[in-house]
Design a protein around this nucleic acid. Structure first.
Length: 270
DNA sequence: CAGTTACCCTGTGCGC
DNA sequence: TGCGCACAGGGTAACT
């Protein structure tokens, strides 16, 4: 699931349902999903802390842990969530925790923030500064916040394929396999098209489509099947497999090691 | 540098 | 009905 739109939905969920509440403890069902922290360290960091404003960069979600000035007087700690392919985050009743909730953060009022991750490819960690984390991990600018000049700058000079660049989090942070496909479909660019072969007009259109697709996806709660089926690829990507405009069968190719769906007539071979 | 493959994990869906 | 295999919206390392 989680590409930028999903993580933004989770961020807003934390903002509305978790911010300002006190975390009373942590339960870890499998330490494999912890990144660089022990169970006990996570528990100490969480217990008694108040959730601050959540932040997102690309597919990373950060939640600040605030506490009274009597303890932890050093640098602030932030929870970091990365969702892998199947991670989810939601607030549930403490007596109705879903399956695969390998990290559970207890809230007040009998509720729990459940991080579910069936395939265990997601991670929860602690960082002391989200900006520093983004920097040291070499993440590119956030796809939702980047402006047009920066967008053109990060693409310029690249020799590879457009989809590979979109999937590379060090170029642009937040796009994943399915929203990259959607953007390329909207603009009519083949996933294996070389960036160097795209002139100013399609680059301009790619920026516009990226912003539009991300905003619309967030409006639809990051449910790809909820996008308007008359003009978006994703509702058809696993359903009827047909281009909503022409009715022709979608095709697939590999790019960047992942399967790209595209419409052969709208997105001609480079 | 660009591109591909293998791997990390485990659930699901399809073909036989 | 049951079994095996390929694949899945992420990321990284190693190899061509």
């Amino acid at each position: 699931m989680p590409e930028l739109p999903d993580v933004e939905v989770y961020r807003r969920r934390v903002e509305r349902q978790v911010q300002h509440r006190t975390l009373t403890g942590a339960v870890v069902g499998d330490p494999l999903v912890l990144d660089g922290v022990s169970v006990s360290t996570l528990q100490r960091a969480v217990r008694g802390a108040t959730a601050g404003a959540p932040r997102r960069h690309g597919k990373q979600l950060f939640v600040r842990l605030e506490r009274g000035d009597d303890e932890g007087g050093g640098s602030p700690a932030w929870l970091r969530f990365h969702f892998g392919m199947t991670g989810r985050l939601r607030v549930v009743p403490e007596d109705d925790v879903p399956e695969y909730a390998y990290v559970q953060l207890a809230l007040d009022a009998g509720e729990t923030l459940a991080f579910t991750v069936p395939r265990k490819l997601g991670r929860v960690g602690l960082v002391d500064d989200p900006d520093a984390y983004v920097e040291t991990k070499g993440l590119g600018p956030d796809a939702l916040r980047i402006d047009r000049p920066r967008f053109e700058a990060v693409l310029s000079g690249r020799r590879g394929m457009i989809k590979t660049a979109f999937l590379d989090q060090s170029v642009l942070a937040g796009l994943g396999n399915i929203y990259a496909d959607e953007i390329l479909f909207q603009v009519g660019v083949h996933p294996r098209a070389k960036i160097a072969g795209l002139d100013a007009e399609p680059r301009h259109a790619l920026f516009d489509a990226m912003k539009e697709v991300l905003h619309v996806a967030i409006q639809h709660e990051a449910d790809p099947d909820a996008l308007p089926p008359d003009r978006y690829l994703l509702p058809h990507r696993r359903g009827d497999d047909r281009d909503p405009f022409t009715g022709e069968k979608l095709q697939t190719v590999k790019a960047g090691g992942r399967t790209a769906y595209f419409s052969p007539s709208r997105q001609p071979e480079p």
